Simulated assay, not measured.
Amino acid sequence: MTTAPRTADAAPAVDRERAVAAVRELLSAVGEDVERLGLMRTPERVADLYLELFSGIGRDPASALGAPVALTENEQPGELVGVTGIPFRSVCEHHLLPFEGTVDVFYAPSRHIAGLSRVARLVDAASRRPQLQERLGQQIVDAMMAVLSPHGVAVRIEAAHGCVAHLEPAAASARAVTVATAGTLPGDLWRLAATAQA
Score class of each variant (00 low, 15 high):
Ala160Asn: 02
Val155Pro: 03
Ala64Arg: 04
Leu65Gln: 00
Asp33Trp: 10
Ala67Thr: 15
His151Asp: 02
Phe54Thr: 01
Arg156Phe: 02
Gly66Ile: 07
Glu93Ser: 07
Thr7Gln: 07
Asn74Trp: 15
Ala29Tyr: 07
Val103Gln: 00
Ala171Ser: 15
Tyr107Ala: 02
Gln133Ser: 03
Ala154Ser: 06
Ile57Trp: 06
Gly82Lys: 04
Leu53Trp: 11
Gly115Tyr: 05
Arg41Phe: 14
Arg89Leu: 15
Thr2Trp: 14
Leu96His: 12
Ala172Asp: 01
Ala11Tyr: 12
Leu97Cys: 05
Val105Leu: 04
Ser173Ala: 14
Pro5Lys: 06
Ala64Phe: 08
Ser63Tyr: 09
Ser127Asp: 00
Ala4Met: 14
Ala174Asn: 10
Pro109Met: 01
Leu37Val: 15
Thr72Tyr: 11
Val179Met: 04
Val105Glu: 00
Ala125Cys: 12
Gly115Ala: 06
Val91Phe: 06
Gly101Trp: 07
Gly85Asn: 02
Thr84Ala: 05
Gln133Phe: 08
Thr7Ala: 10
Gly38Trp: 12
Asp124Lys: 11
Asp124Asn: 11
Asp9Ser: 08
Arg135Gly: 08
Arg191Ser: 07
Gln76Cys: 13
Val155Trp: 03
Thr84Arg: 13
Met40Ile: 14
Thr178Gly: 00
Ala196Arg: 13
Phe54Asp: 00
Ser110Val: 07
Phe54Lys: 09
Val164Phe: 09
Val14Ala: 09
Ser63Leu: 11
Glu32His: 12
Ile57Val: 15
Ile57Gly: 10
Ser110Leu: 13
Ala154Val: 07
Ala108Val: 10
His112Trp: 11
Gly78Thr: 05
Ser149Leu: 15
Ala160Trp: 07
Gly58Asn: 01
Ala19Pro: 10
Leu96Ser: 03
Gly38Pro: 09
Arg135Leu: 12
Ala70Gly: 12
Ser127Leu: 05
Ala172Thr: 08
Ala170Asn: 09
Thr2Asp: 08
Glu79Met: 11
Gly162Gln: 02
Leu37Cys: 11
Val147Gln: 00
Ala176Trp: 02
Asp142Ile: 03
Pro98Arg: 04
Arg128Thr: 06
Thr102Ala: 10
Ala159Met: 01
Val123Ile: 11
Ser90His: 04
Ala198His: 14
Arg41Asp: 13
Pro5His: 05
Gln138Asn: 05
Ala125Leu: 13
Ser55Asp: 11
Val147Leu: 03
Ala160Asp: 01
Val153Pro: 04
Val69Asp: 00
Ala67Gln: 13
Phe88His: 03
